[in-house]
Each structure stands twice: as structure tokens, then as C-alpha cells.
Design a protein around this nucleic acid. Structure first.
Length: 268
DNA sequence: TGTGATGTTGAATG
DNA sequence: GCATTCAACATCAC
């Protein structure tokens, strides 16, 4: 699930439910996703603490504790938050849960266990260590263009590269390419500056609109990926069907000629 | 039943 | 060292 708009939605959910209440108890049912602590260490670190606020960068959500340290929630493919009171509302794949003093709980659900939880003592140092790029909504046009310069890799791989800009995942990357009519296998550096500026603006527009709709696909415009990215869909010009290929390491849907392929001139 | 899935990483390659 | 690709991670649903 979670790309930037989804994680921003998680952030709002977290901020709206879990701040300023003491964690009375922590229960860990599977510490596999907790990367730098054992389950018991995690329990020790968190018990008695209070979440003060949170900071999102790309798909990473950092929850600030009252000791100025952080818990990083990275949701992977299937991570989810669940704030609830009664046992019946516990989710099936809950990996750990915080019990607050107001009798509510915040559970972290993750069937596929691709999520990553880290206890972070120093936020800046952690981000530097991971090499996490600027948030996709915060990065400036100039930085975006500069990063694209001379790159030979695909625009798809570029948009997905969290070290360059953080937050764009597979679906939104396809949507940016589709809306700007850029073939996803285009070499980033070969795309004219004007077109790259368009991609930059469209990317931020898409992310903002998705956030406005709380990342709920069914409320996205009808011509967005959740509709066109289906087997058998025709291009807007009616000339071809949607195709898919592995580009930038991920399954990519696109319209082969409706979206223009930009490549560097071949040397001879 | 086999396959692929909204993500990241570390190793391998160029 | 850098840019890029790819297998691996764990489980579920079609």
C-alpha cells in the first residue's frame, strides 16, 4: 500500500489518535520487523514514554518521543496502523501494540512483514546514514532537474529512487509518466528540460491530490491509474492497449506509443 | 498450484 | 566511487 500519500494519511491518523498519552504497556507478538532491537528491548524503550508528534519524509514516518528520540515506522508493502479499544478490533496480523493510559491501543499490522521499525536516537544522523533524499513534495524544481542531468537510467527508476527524492512508489511513478506522456523507459537525462519541469509539477500535483483524498483510490479521478492500469484498457487516443514491462525493477504499465520514448543519441 | 504484489536492501555488475 | 540491476525478504490472494 504505502507510498507518500498513504504514509501522509497514516501520519494524520497517528497524530489524531496517539499523541500525548502515556504508553502504559507494549506487547510484541513478532519482533521480526523491528530491525535494531529485540522485542524485549523495544518494550523496555517504549514503556512509559509518550509520543509528542511525528515527522514524515517520503515513505518514512518518524514518531517523536518525550525523550527526544524516535520510532521509525516504515510500512513496507502491507504495514498499517489500527487504533482501537476492544479486543474484537485487533487486526489479524498485528505485530506489536501500544496500550495507552486512556484504554485505547495503537496496533501495527503487517501481513507480509516487509515493514521496518527502527529505534532512532538521532534523526539527522539516521537520515544521513540511510541516504534518504528530499521529500518528493519538498524537493525544488532546480534540485529535481539537477539530479536528472546526464542520467542514463530510466525515468521510472529515477522517480523510484528514494535517495534522489523520497516518496514516489510504483503506482504514482506510472501515473506521472502517463499524465506527462513520457515513456517510462525514457532515459531521464535525455528528456528535454521543459518536459522534465512538467513531470516535476505533475508529480507534486498528483501527490497533493492523492493526499486530499486520503490516499483512497476510489475517490481518485477516473482517469487515474486505478482505472487505466488494468489489462485491456485502451489509450486515450484509442490507438493501443495498455502494455506492461519490467522497468526500473518493477512491473510498469504504459501505452507504448502514446507515451514518448526519449533516448540519448546512440554513438556510432 | 504457481505467480506476483503499492517496498527496501545488499551484492553483483558495468 | 558511482549508476544500475537483481535476487531475497514473508505472506496472501487470485
Amino acid at each position: 500500500m504505502p507510498e507518500l500519500p498513504e504514509v501522509e494519511t497514516f501520519k494524520k491518523y497517528f497524530d489524531g489518535t496517539s499523541l500525548n498519552q502515556q504508553i502504559e504497556r507494549v506487547e510484541v507478538s513478532d519482533d521480526k520487523i523491528i530491525r535494531n532491537l529485540t522485542g524485549n528491548e523495544f518494550i523496555d524503550k517504549l514503556t512509559g514514554r509518550t509520543f509528542l508528534d511525528s515527522y514524515r519524509r517520503g515513505k518514512y514516518l518518524f514518531a517523536r518521543l518525550d525523550n527526544e528520540e524516535y520510532i521509525l515506522f516504515h510500512f513496507g508493502m502491507t504495514g498499517d496502523l489500527n487504533y482501537y479499544e476492544v479486543e474484537a478490533d485487533r487486526t489479524k496480523h498485528e505485530r506489536f501494540v501500544f496500550y495507552f493510559t486512556n484504554n485505547q491501543r495503537l496496533g501495527f499490522d503487517c501481513p507480509r512483514k516487509f515493514a521496518r521499525i527502527n529505534y532512532v536516537e538521532n534523526l539527522e544522523a539516521y537520515i544521513a546514514k540511510v541516504g534518504l533524499g528530499e521529500d518528493a513534495l519538498e524537493i525544488s524544481e532546480a534540485e529535481f532537474l539537477d539530479a536528472a542531468k546526464n542520467r542514463k537510467g530510466s525515468i521510472k527508476g529515477f522517480l523510484l529512487n528514494q535517495k534522489i527524492l523520497a516518496g514516489v512508489g510504483n503506482l504514482y511513478a506510472d501515473e506521472v509518466c502517463y499524465q506527462t506522456r513520457i515513456h517510462p523507459a525514457s532515459q531521464v537525462g535525455a528528456i528535454p528540460t521543459k518536459k522534465l519541469k512538467e513531470a516535476f509539477a505533475v508529480m507534486q500535483e498528483i501527490l497533493k491530490k492523492a493526499i486530499e483524498r486520503s490516499a483512497y483510490y476510489k475517490e481518485y479521478p477516473e482517469n487515474w491509474f486505478w482505472e487505466w492500469r488494468k489489462e485491456g484498457t485502451s489509450a486515450p487516443n484509442g490507438k493501443e492497449k495498455v502494455a506492461w514491462e519490467k522497468i526500473g525493477g518493477r512491473t510498469t504499465y504504459f501505452f507504448p506509443t502514446y507515451q514518448r520514448l526519449y533516448l540519448f543519441e546512440k554513438k556510432r
